[in-house]
């Protein structure tokens, strides 16, 4: 009994800190609050305003562009790296360490490092031009249409190692006799991976997708460190939109509305994954 009482403070803290804050945000999103919270019901006014803002549309679309590419590329590279590790015997530990290192870095460090690398005047472009290829151009970072892809490059570099580690553990858990059976059946390795091993690891892949999706939704540091949302607001993401409006533009109502929409997006995603999992169990 005492043991349960001892948990009460932390449960309360959790309930108020997390769910209370969420509720408060949702409430605020229906008020006309600006610099400070004002409990004056304004209906959907903040949402209507949000949807008239081009900046919000860019940020919200970016989340899907960045998210889809980030998840897809991280998965592809991570899985390929894991298969490479699974195949080679020598240098396995070294390779694993090398590819795992980026996860140990914060997204801020990743963002800054890639900003230097991709900055046309200091980074890769300048270096290659220095080698004598004067016409070489790689200026995605400063191009409003393409800057979002530089976020993908940096993000994938950061996250592929994690996918690799998880998938490598999954590959290691596959019963060796399945491989032997495949050899007796004369099934080539690539076919084995494509048709048998990777389908077997679907639950592991789903875990990777969930982890990567959370990265996408909360991604803020990477944008701040790498592009600052620019050029203009072309690489804005919802999380950054919310923080900017909350703290620098002092528009609590609008920020709350955006945050509520992010929460709604997450809930939709979670429901989708729950449904996918259920499908898997049912089959």
């Amino acid at each position: 009994m005492m043991a349960r009482f001892a948990l009460v403070p932390s449960i309360l803290l959790c309930a108020i800190g997390f769910y209370g804050a969420m509720l408060w945000t949702v409430v605020i999103s229906f008020t006309s609050s600006t610099i400070t919270p004002r409990y004056e019901f304004a209906g959907l006014a903040q949402y209507v305003r949000l949807f008239t803002m081009d900046r919000w549309h860019v940020a919200y679309t970016n989340m899907f562009v960045f998210g889809a590419l980030y998840i897809a590329c991280s998965l592809i590279f991570g899985v390929l790296l894991a298969i490479a590790l699974d195949q080679s015997i020598r240098g396995r530990n070294l390779l694993q360490t090398i590819f795992l290192y980026p996860i140990a870095l914060s997204f801020i460090v990743t963002g800054l490092a890639w900003q230097w690398l991709l900055n046309p005047t200091t980074g890769l472009q300048n270096y290659v031009r220095g080698l004598g290829f004067e016409s070489f151009a790689f200026d995605w970072l400063s191009s409003p249409d393409r800057a979002v892809y530089t976020l993908v490059i940096a993000g994938v570099w950061h996250a592929a190692g994690l996918v690799m580690a998880i998938m490598y553990a999954g590959l290691g858990s596959v019963d060796g006799e399945i491989w032997r059976a495949g050899r007796v059946d004369g099934i080539p390795r690539t076919t084995m991976y494509r048709r048998i091993i990777l389908p077997m690891l679907k639950p592991v892949i789903i875990v990777c997708v969930v982890l990567l999706s959370m990265d996408v939704i909360k991604s803020y540091e990477l944008v701040v460190a790498m592009t600052g949302g620019g050029p203009g607001y072309s690489t804005d993401l919802p999380a950054k939109f919310v923080v900017d409006n909350l703290f620098t533009r002092t528009n609590i109502g609008l920020a709350s509305a955006a945050a509520t929409l992010m929460l709604a997006s997450i809930i939709v995603l979670l429901l989708l994954f729950g449904w996918l999992q259920k499908e898997r169990v049912a089959r």
């Binding site: 019963d175 399945i178 032997r180 050899r183 007796v184 099934i187």
Partner: peptide
Amino acid sequence: EPAERNIGMVFQSYA
């Protein structure tokens, strides 16, 4: 290779 030997094999874990 095992496949070229044209054998049928049954494994302990069924595989």
